[in-house]
Amino acid sequence: MRVLVILALLVAAGGAHAQFRMPNIDINRMVDTVKNVGKAVKEIDEPEEIAIGKDVASRLLGAAPLVANPGMQRYVNNVGRWLAVQTERPDLPWQFGVLDSSNVNAFAVPGGTIFITRGLLERMRSEAELAGVLGHEIGHVLRKHHLKAIQKGAQSALAGDVLGHALRDRAGPARDKLIAFGTEMYSRGLDKSDELEADRLGVVIAARGGYDAYGLPSVLQTLQAMNAQDSALALMFKTHPAPAERLDSLSEKMQPVLDAYSSQPQLAERFVRQIKK
């Protein structure tokens, strides 16, 4: 912060003298230096990622509570945790929740919290399909897609050094602003390339867990068959590429993996027992 003030003073002084002579300072290099100092301060480490994630998760739960069905919640946690163990971040505090909403959607929160809606779960036919969707969301967490978007967005959309303040003081007003911003991001979505990457990771993660790799493509076909005007799909379709594009991308890039692991279990019966009762 102090560096910024000094820079501002220097620029102001430079401007005042500009009519007499060009200031003999390389402003570009100074700006770069300040940026790098800022970056070093603002690198979000894993404990911070987890703390930000819990605050964002709390807000999403404010939008929709958990389905009041402990058996269903534990079942989804078992599937999700089993998949997460197969990845390079096996020991994050992974937790999975089914949100009580008829909307069709799923959310990945930094630090290992994953939500899926009751509306999406009810349209699935097997555990392999659930694994495909959870794998997609786990992929977002592994690659820190939302965390990076929060970090990037906070720097450009929020005034001043909100991110720095929010990281230093977890109870201050800057923190509130950052978490509100991070939550709002779920209404706007990620870059398309992040979504397509998460699809590829989801297929791999489900296959690693021992599931039929075609679970995710199967869910995408279900979404494709639904009426795009259905309001339950509005936010998901607004924040994700169309199912047809996602299926094309998977078929273009993942056909060998899909086919190599297509005869692994789907576990339709266990899924139906746990979800449809």
């Binding site: 929709a64 909403s101 209404s187 936010l235 607004k238």
Partner: peptide, 11 residues
């Protein structure tokens, strides 16, 4: 409450 864009943004 709900998971529409506005409801999430104001949660």
């Amino acid at each position: 409450r709900g998971l529409d864009a506005d409801q999430i943004a104001n949660a």
